[in-house]
Amino acid sequence: MNSGVWAITFDLIREALARRWILALLLAMTLVLGGMSLGLSVEVVDGALAATRLFGTSLDNDIRAADVALRPVFEAAAYVIFYGGLCFGILACSDFVPSLLAPGRIEHLLSLPVRRSALIIGTYGGVFLVMAGLAAYGALGFTVVLGLKTGVWTPRLLAAALLAVITFAAIFGVMVTAAVFVRSSALSALAGGALCLAGLFSGNRDQLLPMFEPGKERTAFEIFCVFFPPVAAIARAAGDLAASLPIDRDLLLRQLAGLLLFGAAAVAVGIWRFEQKDF
């Protein structure tokens, strides 16, 4: 990447970290983690979780291996990070590109010795890094709190967070392009939300397909699914990964590669349009 991209990325990160939304999320995550570390009480006997209490309330009556018993917790944390992160990202990051394209700002940026593509790629990269940082903070916090409480140390929550960030990368690619076409944070968020929703269908296509009659309807649904990221499937994989459940590694890697290419393709459409635009 050239220096222009880095400069844009750096500026965006600095701008993002000064935003109230982002600061509020960081504060909220810190409070939740702090609350968990104070309120969660677990009893581990010979590697088995004998009792779990959150603020004195028993959570699960079954006695199982600690890492197995904590799976629902890790799984829930992964889902919270995944879907919570996507929702937050769609809302909080919908304004970055419209703000970049704000009258007065974009003319000035375009007058600088930076390629137009670098402006979009730099903004995209900056948002990606901000979301990756936030997801890593949340996942690392959960890992440390649960690790200290139970002795179960697993990096799988971080891996689950990575899946969330890669999924967001695909969604944000579409948001960038939407904002380039129509400079509106609301429409950008709407595009992200719609893609996320389509991804829920696409990610459950194996279960939904039998509901369609064989023929045109089913073919249309299959084609629809092919062009949208399987968000629900990646979320499931994130949950399974966090819960130490087996996953189809090859399939997951293939889907992740598809997501990254989808995001890149969406950004390329945005750059194509951006290159044509007058400001």
């Binding site: 696409s202 194996d206 997501l259 890149a264 393709a265 969406a266």
Partner: peptide
């Protein structure tokens, strides 16, 4: 480039949706 990437992404994402043992 976008078209090529979309096609590649669609191919990669066209597998089964539920990876489970």
């Amino acid at each position: 480039l976008a078209v090529a990437l979309f096609v590649a992404a669609a191919w990669l994402m066209s597998g089964p949706s539920r990876p489970e043992s």
